[in-house]
Design a protein around this nucleic acid. Structure first.
Lengths: 353, 353
DNA sequence: TTGTACGCGTTATCAA
DNA sequence: TTGATAACGCGTACAA
């Protein structure tokens, strides 16, 4: 009696699905209600907040749901509640490996907490970024901005609408997850000082990059402390190719050690220098930032200041989810540690130039 | 008159948002209707299918919408239509750079056609993959499966529900986008034959990998044609680390040239061999597959058979979107070309071992 | 061309 | 504990 007619053979012409969505319209709570002999609202209760229904009917309903292979329609649910169980992640450049781990971290925690991750890219453009953010805002419960390029004000405006967490940048009044550069940088600079370097160049990243400035400040501070000289150079783009193009300036700077805004720049720089016959690290030491995928593919493998990007992604997602569930209302910055990863591209300079 | 009272100062207690969503409930078509002095359905028409409304009221409505900063509620729209303007992409491993370009390609075409991309990962597990796919199915209009690990039957089952496009694998009855290995492989093998190699090893990928088998078949065929000997070796995991572990087998195989299932294996293998004092390519040639990000970071840079992954992502997304818009109903396989990228890790073997 | 009325699948309110 | 019923915001026959 609990079982309806199995619709495998002759099916009366009248029982054809009314609206016939795209073929097999899925079962709704009404179907379950009918089968279980209860009201649809009871089904809703049983399925969404267990405990508010007698254990007898609860089981009845669950069985029916299982038999009908029922699954909620997220859109129908989102309409009255406004909750979508989805959050967005916007990165500056999908092909930049810096973001790979961030994406993975976010995706992992998302699915582990039964959320869906939607991804968008800003192509390093503040305008595109803002557009993407606005678009996503309509679909998600919250947003993670990784290395955002847009204004603080725009970010705050978004954050006023729905929970927003920022990675790799500090924005007043918005929860952030930021690697603290100091530990890693001071380790790096001390290592260079110990190896006899006197003059260190920093190759900066994009002008809009908040993090690039923090790193430059860190390098300056650490050099001051170790009584080394720090000089700043600019780059065109924070890519391998951009790194190659800085080689000339680097050589002209007279520095014997170089720290670059990111690993990509370091790799490009190293390739270009080596192509010119310069030996790394005998003639010049190179240190990158981030420890991205592939940083150890080079010869010599790249010394770098590692940022725990995966952790950042996880932490940001966790914070966002907590915010969504009303746990933590704080808007402060969460710092994660950086550390020097000593590999072959840095070391003592050889007397013979 | 067209403007409503600006609600900045005294707001009557009665006008508080009834349901009080999460603070600022957004404007609806009803608000626009009121402001424009028309019916809500007219607004709906004006906004969704322009042309079916007089140009006068059209403008009226558009102005009101702009003033109210209106944006559609995707969920409310999805309910009656069943369309979400969203599609899913499932990849085997987010941190595997093979998928980076695929992701980017898909994301780019998605946003360019005003779709939203949701991303999920299967962690190389068929079960996880199926779960993720089912989850996503509820939320999206279609699905792209990149290098899926699940059964053909499961894929077909999904495809029966909503449009599905597969990348890097051929599944009967499902539209696929697959790099054609032959051109690239035959170029590679001919190059090795020309360089005097006689015995070529192929390091295979995961057993579930459809593509790994295709590549092995391609290598065999090309070797036959060039009268070279082909031997097959297995790997534990298709990663850099997995590549390192194959070094012993590779040396034992007596092959003077190695092709690996992917670039990651090739890089790991090269590292391990070099660490043992073997010179690449003087003692042994190494050729990878895919030309992933970082393949040219190594010394020597990796020779590899390039698959246009970005194109695959774009093509898959385009096909999916076409399917959704009723353009193409074909379920065939779209082949994209592969080509040999000759770099430093392959070449003539030196007489002196 | 525009308005009326209803349905989409769920949650939420209020009685029973 | 349960059942009716009204939203939620939008699309769409159907009628005007």
């Amino acid at each position: 009696m609990t079982e309806p007619q199995t619709p495998d053979t002759a099916q009366p012409a009248g029982s054809v699905k009314k609206h016939g969505r795209d073929g097999k319209s899925n079962a709704t709570i009404y179907d379950i209600a009918k089968m279980a002999g209860v009201n649809a609202s009871t089904v809703s209760r049983a399925l969404s907040k267990p405990g508010r229904v007698s254990s007898k009917t609860q089981k009845l309903i669950e069985d029916a749901a299982a038999q009908l292979n029922y699954q909620v329609n997220p859109f129908a649910r989102a309409l009255p509640t406004g909750k979508t169980n989805t959050f967005g992640l916007i990165v500056a450049d999908i092909t930049n490996p810096t973001f790979f781990d961030i994406i993975r971290g976010a995706e992992t925690t998302a699915t582990s907490r039964d959320y869906t991750l939607v991804l968008a890219e800003s192509a390093e453009s503040p305008a595109t970024e803002l557009t993407a953010a606005r678009r996503l805002m309509a679909t998600v419960d919250g947003l993670i901005l990784a290395s955002p390029r847009m204004d603080d004000d725009n970010i705050r405006a978004l954050a006023q609408d729905k929970p927003v967490v920022v990675i790799n940048r500090e924005v007043d009044g918005v929860p952030c997850v930021v690697p603290d550069v100091n530990k890693g940088i001071s380790e790096a600079v001390r290592s260079m000082a110990a190896n006899g370097h006197q003059r260190i160049a920093y190759v900066a990243g994009p002008p809009q990059s908040w993090m690039s400035e923090r790193r430059w400040e860190g390098v300056q501070a650490a050099c001051d402390w170790s009584r080394l000289e720090a000089v700043r150079l600019e780059s065109s783009k924070p890519t391998v190719d951009g790194g190659r193009k800085t080689a000339r300036d680097v050589r002209a700077s007279g520095a014997t050690a170089v720290m670059t805004y990111n690993d990509l720049l370091a790799i490009g720089l190293m390739q270009e220098l080596q192509a010119a016959g310069i030996v790394v690290p005998d003639h010049i030491s190179i240190i990158g930032f981030d420890d991205i995928f592939g940083a150890d593919f080079t010869t010599p493998p790249l010394t770098t200041v590692r940022s725990p990007l995966g952790e950042c992604g996880e932490a940001a997602a966790t914070r966002l989810l907590d915010l969504l569930h009303g746990s933590g209302e704080q808007a402060g910055t969460l710092s994660v540690e950086t550390e020097l990863v000593l590999r072959g591209s840095s070391g003592r300079i050889l007397p013979a130039k």
